[in-house]
Design a protein around this nucleic acid. Sequence first.
DNA 1: TGGTAATCGAGACGGTACGTCTGGTCTTAGG
DNA 2: CCTAAGACCAGACGTACCGTCTCGATTACCA
Lengths: 199, 199, 199, 199
Amino acid sequence: MASNKAPERRASIGAQRNPASEEAILTAAAEILAEGGFGAFSIEAVARRAKAGKPTIYRWWPSKAALLLDVYQRQKTFDAQPDTGDVERDLAIFLKSLLSFWAEGPQGNIFRSIIAEAQSDPAAEKALSDYAADRRIHTGEIIRRAQERGQVPAETDASLLAETIAGFAWGRLLTGNANSPPEELERAVHQMVAGIIRP
Amino acid sequence: MASNKAPERRASIGAQRNPASEEAILTAAAEILAEGGFGAFSIEAVARRAKAGKPTIYRWWPSKAALLLDVYQRQKTFDAQPDTGDVERDLAIFLKSLLSFWAEGPQGNIFRSIIAEAQSDPAAEKALSDYAADRRIHTGEIIRRAQERGQVPAETDASLLAETIAGFAWGRLLTGNANSPPEELERAVHQMVAGIIRP
Amino acid sequence: MASNKAPERRASIGAQRNPASEEAILTAAAEILAEGGFGAFSIEAVARRAKAGKPTIYRWWPSKAALLLDVYQRQKTFDAQPDTGDVERDLAIFLKSLLSFWAEGPQGNIFRSIIAEAQSDPAAEKALSDYAADRRIHTGEIIRRAQERGQVPAETDASLLAETIAGFAWGRLLTGNANSPPEELERAVHQMVAGIIRP
Amino acid sequence: MASNKAPERRASIGAQRNPASEEAILTAAAEILAEGGFGAFSIEAVARRAKAGKPTIYRWWPSKAALLLDVYQRQKTFDAQPDTGDVERDLAIFLKSLLSFWAEGPQGNIFRSIIAEAQSDPAAEKALSDYAADRRIHTGEIIRRAQERGQVPAETDASLLAETIAGFAWGRLLTGNANSPPEELERAVHQMVAGIIRP
DNA sequence: TGGTAATCGAGACGGTACGTCTGGTCTTAGG
DNA sequence: CCTAAGACCAGACGTACCGTCTCGATTACCA
């Protein structure tokens, strides 16, 4: 991605964090995840590619998970807040955008890695849980706007629906099915929104 | 005549798989996962606890993931097929049972490990994807029964709803929130089933 | 060496040693040693190539060393007993023949393997020591003939000279220098026989 | 402030070889060879006894043979250069000293191991061959001194005689007969030096 | 003539060691 | 006090052999 052929040593710049090192490390980590997935991701590999010392990494990121999260948040530019005036359409756009975002760039691989890491590292689990809650609030805005419009009853739990949609997306990502046909996703959203009970 | 120096050794029973070894290995693996989670799970550790040789494990389970799946399927006795005559109630029971099942026994930890492993091992990803599809069919039966009763329209995609519910459960499990208040789960199912659009 | 393309299984011929198996095993062992040296030699490899069961090998040869010795003695056709009437010439012929014999065929590799094995297996050490003593007697005949002719004093220790020559040959073999120029070997023998003290 | 959980650990001393580790590894290796011979010698065992990581060993000694040679040269204090004024006496002292040196200390076992290893590892073979050539030059000095005195003709090949004596000693060592009666060794040297041809 | 006994190939068993990789800690030398 | 570098111990990885065991079959020998 970022070409990295600096022939010169990247020495200390004194008693402070060297932004060039941070940059090189995050870039290297992202490239490794994009190229080889979670299996290829190790602190050793990152240090090797970034031409950094392992302690430099450990100094700033206490765990593999912290580095992963930093990489994800740095890359992440996904911020779909569709507002067509129709909640179903908005949510369908959101879901389709999220899965394409994961399927097309390296971010899908990175986020999968974070989830994987969270299954054995409690700190990563906590971070992931917090991150998910935050995203729920964010996504919930779509629904809250519909509530303000009167399209959705006030007693609807926006967070719970946001969680439902996110859970669906996670399931696809984690089983290697992030690349889903749009119609299917639209159908899924339609069922969530319209319900299935015969009127 | 046969000297009995090591009476507890589990020798070969000829050119065929020894069920006692298989048993010991699966049991050891399950115990390790229950006690220490995925972080403590290694082929070495399993071999040590099962008093088996590493090659014996590799002979029958080509990868860590294969062993994990075997352990999960062996333990798994969760087979809720509630049939109260009301689809929402059935699905709520299903979701609550699944999450309790994961929260209370070791199976939650084991399944989390499988998902984690699937993020770096393509074979595990495939196995997980297949397993999920299979479970979807199984869970879909609840909805198909409702369709036969006329409670749910025939054009509803049962598999997609099953996936939605499963995705929700995965999300809770993977963020360490398998232990959820039942009312919340009921509310989630209610929204999925009844929809959120104002009539 | 012996072509071995028997498509049929080599079954038991009753409660007795099957000569076809013995043959196949010794042939396979010799071929492996000739091709890959001691490093490639393992009971597994022999069993594989001979299409024999490991227990069949262990039944008849209690140790790797026993098999090695059997292979060596089966191959060994070196039996130089030159008798030109001149002891120096006889011994030079003997030494040159021995080293060519080792350098040209597989027997050099096999004998090196036996010596190597003898360094960690006491049984092999004993067998090697006995074998060496036996060969000493054999080689000593050359000198004893010279004593009978009156060319060599009666008090000369024939066995000790035989050992000296054998030791020289071993040294060359074990350092990978079995392929020595004949003149050098003649010079070595000349010094041993004629002495070095100024008359 | 520095937690002292494992005060006896031998940590890194920076980006450079830690002499304490080298010391511990060589000592452990020597002890294992002295106690159990070549059969007990494995990198695992050395690492275990030295409380070192295997990679630390592989970092500095690329092969088992390299470690063996280092151990031998470190132990080796045998440096007999007798100078009595009589070449036969000098050589007899040399041979007797060498075999006692091998028979009494661990060095015999170590050197046997090196020879054994050289039979399957080409690098070890080369190292052994070079080492033997070097020792030949060293031992040859005894003979060259005699040549200067005029006791031995100038045309005598000192290296070849040194090789003869060394070969004799190797033969004894490798067959487990390092512990030889001195008279026998004296007789052997006498024959080599005085020749056997009737005047 | 039928039962016993030893053989055969095959291959699984619990183990040990291999040589490599990574984890996380520590120290150095230089800015 | 930071930086790159890299050594340190620890231990998991997946593979190759070790020597032992049991299997089912195949025969020779003996009752």
